[in-house]
Simulated assay, not measured.
Amino acid sequence: MNALWYVGRGTGLVSILLLTLVVALGVANRCGRRVLGLPRFAVAAVHRSASLLGVVFVAVHVLTLLLDPDARLSVLDLVLPFHAALSPFWYGLGTVAFDLLAALVVTSLLRARIGPRVWRGVHWLAYACWPIALGHGLGSGSDAGSGWMLVVVGVCVAAVLGAVAWRFSPRFAEVDDRRAATIPRPTAGAR
């Protein structure tokens, strides 16, 4: 095993942890309430920072595996799914996740130009990107069958499923009574 393999392996693990945090915080930020005692702007800032850090770790993951001779990846394998010489299906899932992540990054950078509606529509791809990336890690990761990795995956799955279940629950839309009491209500004569 060489240093590139260890870096690729480690950055892949950190990437899935960061992407899990990003998905959960993205859901939490949509509720419009304090989450874990943090105001909405702080949750948004942590979400944005974790997103950027996750993209950096994914980029290092991809670059180190591209340079690792044991991975036998080409530049074409990074953009064309299911083309890799080694484990084409599992590496293909990684390519699909990478392509989806690239679309999320590009549209986030162009958000002011493309408008919030298009950006939001593309941003829903995060719900597809995360499980595809997780599947890639489980299928091609060298630690996928180890006990500690199964615990990490279980925690990640529980966090995302919990956030998504909360997002689609009736309780998600409820407004905190304390916050509702501080929001000024329009009077009958006001427009």
Rank of each mutant, 00 (worst) to 15 (best):
residue 41 F to C: 08
residue 61 H to E: 04
residue 157 V to D: 05
residue 183 I to T: 13
residue 40 R to M: 08
residue 182 T to K: 10
residue 78 L to I: 01
residue 77 D to E: 07
residue 10 G to S: 15
residue 69 P to A: 10
residue 106 V to E: 06
residue 143 D to P: 14
residue 20 T to W: 00
residue 104 L to A: 11
residue 155 V to S: 04
residue 9 R to P: 02
residue 151 V to F: 07
residue 148 W to L: 10
residue 63 L to S: 11
residue 174 E to Q: 12
residue 7 V to D: 08
residue 129 C to G: 02
residue 156 C to K: 00
residue 124 W to E: 12
residue 135 G to H: 02
residue 152 V to I: 14
residue 11 T to L: 06
residue 35 V to K: 07
residue 173 A to L: 13
residue 49 S to D: 09
residue 83 H to M: 06
residue 67 L to K: 12
residue 100 L to D: 01
residue 65 L to P: 00
residue 55 V to H: 04
residue 31 C to Y: 07
residue 14 V to C: 02
residue 160 V to Y: 00
residue 2 N to W: 02
residue 134 L to C: 01
residue 54 G to A: 10
residue 60 V to E: 03
residue 141 G to K: 02
residue 110 L to T: 03
residue 6 Y to W: 15
residue 36 L to P: 07
residue 115 G to W: 08
residue 93 L to C: 15
residue 55 V to Q: 01
residue 43 V to F: 13
residue 150 L to S: 08
residue 63 L to C: 04
residue 1 M to C: 11
residue 30 R to P: 05
residue 21 L to I: 02
residue 116 P to N: 10
residue 110 L to F: 03
residue 56 V to E: 03
residue 188 A to P: 13
residue 113 R to D: 12
residue 191 R to C: 11
residue 22 V to E: 05
residue 169 S to Y: 01
residue 185 R to A: 12
residue 5 W to I: 12
residue 182 T to C: 08
residue 119 W to S: 02
residue 184 P to C: 08
residue 147 G to W: 11
residue 4 L to C: 09
residue 85 A to Q: 15
residue 10 G to K: 06
residue 60 V to H: 05
residue 145 G to K: 06
residue 100 L to R: 02
residue 49 S to M: 05
residue 74 S to P: 04
residue 163 A to V: 02
residue 109 L to G: 15
residue 7 V to W: 12
residue 92 G to S: 09
residue 58 V to D: 00
residue 190 A to I: 10
residue 5 W to G: 08
residue 50 A to E: 01
residue 98 F to L: 15
residue 52 L to W: 11
residue 158 A to W: 07
residue 177 D to N: 09
residue 40 R to A: 11
residue 134 L to N: 01
residue 179 R to A: 15
residue 36 L to F: 15
residue 18 L to R: 01
residue 23 V to P: 00
residue 71 A to I: 05
residue 98 F to V: 09
residue 128 A to L: 15
residue 64 T to Y: 11
residue 59 A to S: 14
residue 175 V to C: 08
residue 94 G to A: 10
residue 152 V to K: 04
residue 72 R to V: 07
residue 36 L to A: 15
residue 13 L to E: 10
residue 95 T to R: 01
residue 91 Y to T: 04
residue 11 T to A: 07
residue 153 V to A: 14
residue 160 V to H: 00
residue 131 P to S: 07
residue 104 L to D: 06
residue 41 F to Q: 12
residue 165 A to F: 10
residue 25 L to Q: 02
residue 137 G to H: 03
residue 76 L to S: 10
residue 105 V to P: 05
residue 181 A to Q: 09
residue 35 V to H: 06
residue 1 M to K: 12
residue 46 V to S: 04
residue 33 R to G: 03
residue 145 G to D: 09
residue 112 A to E: 13
residue 69 P to T: 13
residue 116 P to T: 07
residue 158 A to E: 08
residue 82 F to E: 05
residue 128 A to P: 06
residue 12 G to H: 03
residue 98 F to T: 12
residue 191 R to E: 09
residue 78 L to P: 00
residue 154 G to H: 13
residue 142 S to W: 09
residue 134 L to H: 02
residue 141 G to D: 04
residue 143 D to G: 09
residue 129 C to M: 12
residue 171 R to V: 12
residue 136 H to D: 07
residue 111 R to A: 11
residue 6 Y to L: 14
residue 18 L to E: 01
residue 169 S to L: 09
residue 106 V to P: 03
residue 55 V to I: 14
residue 145 G to V: 05
residue 37 G to H: 14
residue 25 L to C: 01
residue 97 A to W: 00
residue 74 S to R: 14
residue 105 V to I: 14
residue 149 M to W: 15
residue 85 A to R: 12
residue 128 A to E: 04
